Computed example of a mutant assay.
Amino acid sequence: MIADRDLAGPIRSTRSPEEQRAFHFAGAFLLPASIVQQRITESLNLHGYLPVKADYGMSVSAIMRRARELGVISAQRYRSLSIQLSSQGWRTNEPVEVADERPLLLRQALHRVYGRQAVARASHVVGVAPAWIHRWTHDERTADTTATTGNVIDLSAARRRSRR
């Protein structure tokens, strides 16, 4: 009931309602309605979506979907843009690269909350290996990855491999 309270109508889709709620939440979280209404119009061409992608890190397809959900563009316009997107080959290779994000404030917040030896203290309180906290804060002192369990996936390397 909480997740659906702002919906204009029931979710009608072949996908599960839970998955649709997750997409709706992610869209609202990553690209607020106020931004969509300011930057996207019914007449905005496909290339006009690229600056929005650069600023918010979402795919053009996801931005178009968000605009359609909010009623900023019509279903017909969404379909037209989707056809253009496919014909440009952007479904698999959009022309704007989005830089990897860096957690600029996480290290600062840890030091403010835990003081000296912030990583060790946070590790103890949260129950996460110090090596993971070093990774999350992009701390270059992280030399020991054997303390972690599971495999670490380097997304930037995976992205580079998929482009070849």
Rank of each mutant, 00 (worst) to 15 (best):
E101I: 14
I35Q: 08
V72R: 03
L104Y: 06
W136E: 13
H24N: 10
A75C: 03
S123V: 05
I133H: 01
D55Q: 15
R39F: 02
L85K: 03
T142N: 10
H111N: 15
R121A: 08
T14L: 12
S43F: 01
S16F: 07
G89A: 13
M58R: 15
E18A: 11
A120I: 06
T92Q: 06
I133F: 02
P103K: 14
H138M: 08
V96E: 03
M64P: 05
R77A: 11
Y49A: 02
Q88Y: 12
A3C: 10
P17W: 05
E69P: 02
H138Y: 07
A67L: 02
I40V: 15
A120N: 11
R121I: 07
R102T: 13
R135P: 00
A157H: 05
L104M: 12
R66W: 04
Y114N: 03
Y49W: 07
H24W: 07
G115T: 05
R66Q: 08
S82C: 08
A54I: 05
L30I: 00
F29T: 09
G127W: 00
R15P: 01
H134V: 00
W136V: 10
Q117A: 09
Q117S: 09
A67H: 06
I2Q: 09
R68T: 06
P130S: 02
V96L: 01
S59C: 13
A158P: 00
H124W: 06
R68K: 11
T41Q: 12
D144F: 02
T92I: 03
G115N: 09
R141D: 05
L44P: 07
A109N: 13
L44M: 15
K53A: 12
G89I: 05
V113R: 15
M58K: 15
K53Y: 11
I73G: 01
S86E: 12
A28C: 10
V119H: 01
G115L: 03
R141H: 05
R135M: 06
L105G: 13
L85P: 02
A129I: 00
T14S: 11
